[in-house]
Design a protein around this nucleic acid. Structure first.
Lengths: 168, 168
DNA sequence: AGCAAGTGCTTCGAGTTCGAATCAGTTGGG
DNA sequence: CCCAACTGATTCGAACTCGAAGCACTTGCT
C-alpha cells in the first residue's frame, strides 16, 4: 500500500486521470446550472426522483436508494425530506418491515420529472454523450463498467457492517 | 434546448453515462478515505499542494489555481486559509500586482506532500488506472481530452467576466 | 492627475454533505 | 417470552461549498 518508490503516472495515464476529474467536475456544474435555471429541482433531487420513478410501484426504500446513488444515508434523509416538503414525494413506513421507509413519487413529482427530463437529457447529450463517437461511447461504457464494478465491490459507502470475516 | 421529443439514451450510452457518475463518486470517496486515514490533508488540499508544487517557484496565483482545479474562488480562499493555518503554505501579495495573492508552498508543505504522495498514487492506481489495459487508458485519455476540452470552453466556473462579444 | 470601469481576492449567509450517535423495530438464541 | 445483537432510518454537530456582495488595487480614458 505504501511503497517507497511509487510508479508515477505516465503522460497518457495522467491525461486519463486528470481529464476524468476535470470532466466530472465540469459536467456536474453544467447539469447543476441547467437544472437550477430550469427551475424545479437540484441534480441530486432529480436523480432521486428518476430512480424512484424507475422502480416498481413508483416507490423505493431509503437505504437502497442511497446505495444505488452512492450517497450517505443521512444525506439521503435530508434530500428526501426536502422533496417531501416540496410535495414531489411522500414517505410511508414499509408495511413489510416497520423499520423501513418507502419514498413514493407523487403525481406532482411525476409531473416535475416529466417537465425537467427533456432539458436535462439535452444537457447530458450536449456536454457529454454527443461529443463522442459511437465507438468511443462503447469503449467508455466498457471502461466504466470495469471501474464502477470494481469500486462498488471495494469501496464502502454505508458503515462497515459488523465485520464477521477478518478485516485485513 | 427544450425539445418536445427528446432522444433518450440508448443502453450503451446509459452504461457510459451512469458508469461515469458512479465511478466519479466512488473513486472520490476512495481517495478521500485513503488520504483522511493517512492523516494529513483532504483530497482538495492534496490537489492544491500538488498544483503549487508543480508551479515554477513553488508558488501559484489564487484565481488561476481555482480555474485549473474547477473550483470556486471563495472555496479556494477557504481551503488555502486552512492550509495556511496548518503551515503547509503561506500567502504573499504578488509584488507585480498588489491585488493578487500568491500561495507559496512551505518546506513543511513540501514534506507533507512527499509523505502523502505514495499512498495517494497507490490508491489512484488500485481504484482506477491499474484496472484498465494500456489500450483502454489511451482510449480514455482521448475521450477525456475531448470532454474536458469542450466543457472547459463551454462551462463558466468564475463569474462571466465582462462580456465583450455577444452572449448567445 | 482624476475618475469610472475592471480585476483579484475575501467575507458572509445559506444550503448541503458526512459520520457518529441515537431511536425504533426485528431476529435469533436461551 | 425475553434479551442481546442487528438493521433501517433519523438527528445532530462540524465541515465544506457556492454565489453575491464588498474591499482593494489597477487600467484606461479624458
Amino acid at each position: 500500500m505504501t511503497e517507497l518508490e511509487p510508479r508515477w503516472l505516465d503522460e497518457t495515464e495522467m491525461r486519463a486521470w486528470n481529464g476524468f476529474l476535470v470532466t466530472a467536475s465540469l459536467i456536474a456544474r453544467m447539469v447543476d446550472a441547467q437544472l437550477s435555471e430550469a427551475g424545479g429541482v437540484t441534480r441530486v433531487q432529480y436523480e432521486i426522483l428518476t430512480r424512484i420513478h424507475a422502480s416498481p410501484g413508483r416507490r423505493h426504500r431509503m437505504t437502497e436508494l442511497a446505495e444505488r446513488m452512492v450517497f450517505s444515508r443521512s444525506g439521503m434523509t435530508y434530500q428526501v425530506a426536502q422533496l417531501e416538503k416540496a410535495g414531489l414525494l411522500r414517505r410511508e413506513t414499509d408495511p413489510e418491515d416497520e423499520r423501513g421507509v418507502l419514498a413514493i413519487l407523487t403525481d406532482e413529482g411525476q409531473r416535475v420529472l416529466e417537465t425537467a427530463a427533456p432539458g436535462h437529457l439535452a444537457t447530458v447529450r450536449e456536454g457529454f454523450v454527443d461529443l463522442l463517437s459511437p465507438e468511443q461511447i462503447a469503449q467508455l461504457a466498457d471502461i466504466m463498467d470495469i471501474t464502477s464494478g470494481h469500486l462498488r465491490a471495494t469501496v464502502p459507502v454505508a458503515p462497515p457492517r459488523k465485520s464477521k470475516g477478518a478485516s485485513c
